[in-house]
Amino acid sequence: MNHVASKNLNLTLKIWRQAGPKQPGGLKTYQVRGISTDMSFLEMLDVLNEQLIASGEEPVAFDHDCREGICGTCGVVINGQAHGPDSGTTTCQLHMRRFHDGDTIVIEPWLAKAFPIVRDLIVDRSAFDRIIQAGGFVSVNTGNAPEANTTLVPHHVQQDAMNAAACIGCGACVASCKNASAMLFVSAKVSHLASLPQGQAERSKRVLNMVATMDAEHFGNCTNTGECEAACPAKIKLSNIAQLNREYMKAALLSKE
């Protein structure tokens, strides 16, 4: 229970380096020494980058911002696992105590057709924004809102909505899926809004448009392997995908729009 005293690790890193979207890429090997087990994974990469700058080599580009597991900016594949070995944990919240002295760690970017590589470990996830643009909202202009307590939302409904709304938009679900499907991400937003009274008016239109955009953005099909749920740092449940499928069927059958 109590914190185990920190140790220092020497590690071999194999990191994907790629100068730009159209340039060739490949794994490059680096050694880092004296990595404290109290460091976060990104702090370990900071150490490497300082080392590279000192030796005159370009630092490794990786996306990050909050370093608290909430902004969804970070995300790399660590030894084949999106966001690394810990469940419910983003790359920035993974700590080096999870590794052992002498380990080799392979670090790669999200690999998916819909997420083109920008540089090194950074990818372009703007397809997610376009999916939300297709309908991941409630159409209510500022100033139009009724008094907040007019519509009651039972506690359990709010909890379900909150659990789905917790998605941080990181893209690990896509990266971990052999089909590069975005179903978990899309289902999280569809379920969040479908479960609340405020989301009802556009319920059918929303799911149809979001799914159409998802397909147009070259995300793959879902074959229910469940890898996405295992990789998701926000613990978005696979049951959301089942709900998405139901919502979609219902909308496709009944929609008059």
Partner: peptide, 11 residues
């Protein structure tokens, strides 16, 4: 009011 109308899942 505005946030609730947008679907913000307040406790």
């Amino acid at each position: 009011d505005q946030c609730v109308a947008q679907g913000v899942p307040f406790a």
